[in-house]
């Protein structure tokens, strides 16, 4: 039981680490809007924690029904970030980045719902571990890119 959990986590690590490395390379200089940086960082952190826990959960805890609240939280965080980006438009294109991130969270919810609705595969109501890793990586990539704009200033 413990060994598969460790393997699942180990598989997630390099994928989750890649966007951090990219953001770290681009992080330097003054913060232009600390609230945007904080909201994006919190969304990334919440999503990483959520997907790490989901990767080691089993049925029925892994089902969409049991995880609706987590998606509500992620959607609320993405909505708050999008609102802030629209309210303080330091870069008009960032508003589009914010809406792409909001759509991404909506699609992540949909992918979990779709996976749980079909129980005729090997994972039953759970999402495939590979799909969990991909969704976690996508949210990290997008949220860290937005956070990095507030630390590089000129991105």
């Amino acid at each position: 039981m413990i060994a598969p959990m460790r393997i699942a986590l180990l598989r997630l690590l390099p994928i989750l680490a890649a966007p951090f490395a990219l953001a770290a390379c681009m992080s330097a200089g003054p913060i232009t809007d600390p609230e945007v940086a904080a909201l994006a960082a919190r969304l990334n952190s919440d999503a990483a924690s959520y997907y790490a826990a989901l990767a080691i959960s089993r049925a029925p805890q892994c089902s969409y029904e049991q995880n609706k609240n987590s998606y509500d939280t992620l959607s609320a965080s993405a909505g708050a970030l999008q609102s802030r980006l629209a309210a303080v438009p330091t870069n008009p294109a960032l508003t589009r980045a914010g809406s792409a991130l909001t759509r991404l969270i909506d699609e992540a919810r949909l992918s979990h719902h779709s996976a749980s609705a079909k129980t005729d595969d090997t994972h039953g109501v759970c999402m495939a571990p590979g799909a969990i890793a991909l969704n976690a990586q996508a949210i990290a990539r997008a949220s860290l890119a937005i956070a990095a704009t507030q630390t590089t200033g000129d991105r």
Partner: peptide, 17 residues
Amino acid sequence: LARIQRNASEAVLASLA
């Protein structure tokens, strides 16, 4: 999943000034 990745890439590229 493919749409999710497209949205992630769009967010990353749109974050460039």
